[in-house]
């Protein structure tokens, strides 16, 4: 199965203002079929780290292994759901989902079958022939999710996929992502800045510091597997929330001050 192994990963960018170290010395492991959330202040390098695992950004140091293989570039076994709306407006929902399969060289029958399966999985049955412009933002993210899941990747990376959605929609979609994950054998790494979302969805939460982005805390989420949103009022949830919030607060303030100092 596909576990994600990060070994001393470092990403540095050259900018006109000098070298910026976005990710520094990250050594972590997402177990096969695990669900890990990555939280951190904005601009801390969460998305950069995800991008490195996806093979979209080159690490300047260290190594990423997915399922025992070193990541050197994009791989169809690693699915990505982006933060921005990535549905193609000139294709229907069905054709959007099929696109991934077409590119992967799946035959037409297989494309239709797997696309329909993925569309049903994300709860969009009945919208296969709709164009994205006719759908809400939440439904479009479902389309993007279906497109990723249609390839049945061993690893799914989600980069704040619900950041642009309203609170109710994101809680609802989060629950669905979790239930899809529970029924699959996938390994999920979920980037978010929402602590509650991170706790609700995952088995483990990583807290990332402001630049240079390092994992400063790893918290196991010891909550029952079946979680409904009412769990947020439980004592266990609040303790987890407090602990993550405490580590995060310092970092957010540090990042805030640094950004203000730079401005």
């Amino acid at each position: 199965m596909s576990e994600i192994n990060l070994e001393n990963v470092e990403v540095a960018f050259d900018t006109p203002a000098g070298t910026v170290v976005a990710v520094s010395g990250v050594t972590q492991r997402v177990p096969a079929q695990g669900f890990v959330s990555l939280v951190g202040p904005s601009g801390c390098g969460k998305s950069t780290l995800l991008s490195v695992i996806a093979g979209l950004t080159k690490a300047t140091g260290g190594q990423v292994q997915v399922g025992g293989k070193v990541v050197n570039g994009p791989d169809r076994g690693i699915g990505v759901v982006f933060q921005e709306d990535s549905t193609l407006p000139w294709r229907t929902v069905l054709d959007n989902v099929r696109f991934a399969l077409q590119v992967a060289g799946v035959d037409k029958e297989g494309q239709l079958e797997r696309a329909r399966w993925a569309i049903e999985l994300v709860g969009l049955k009945g919208f296969a022939d709709a164009y994205p412009s006719m759908l809400s933002g939440g439904m479009r993210q479902r389309v993007a999710l279906a497109r990723t899941l249609a390839l049945e990747p061993g690893v799914v990376l989600m980069d704040e996929p619900f950041a642009a959605l309203d609170q109710q929609t994101r809680i609802f979609l989060g629950a669905e992502v979790r239930s899809i994950w529970q029924r699959s054998a996938q390994t999920v790494l979920f980037v978010t800045h929402d602590i509650s979302e991170a706790i609700l969805l995952s088995e483990q939460v990583w807290v990332m510091s402001y630049r240079p982005g390092q994992i400063i805390d790893v918290i196991d989420v010891d909550l029952p597997a079946e979680r409904d949103p009412s769990i947020v009022s439980s004592h266990a949830f609040n303790e987890l929330h407090n602990r993550i919030w405490t580590s995060l607060q310092e970092e957010s303030m540090r990042g805030f001050r640094q950004q203000e100092g730079a401005a």
Binding site: D75, R76, F82, E84, D85, S86, V103
Partner: peptide, 12 residues
């Protein structure tokens, strides 16, 4: 939109 190009890259 840059995300389309990112999508294209991730789908190879």
């Amino acid at each position: 939109r840059p995300v389309y190009l990112k999508l294209a890259r991730s789908l190879q």
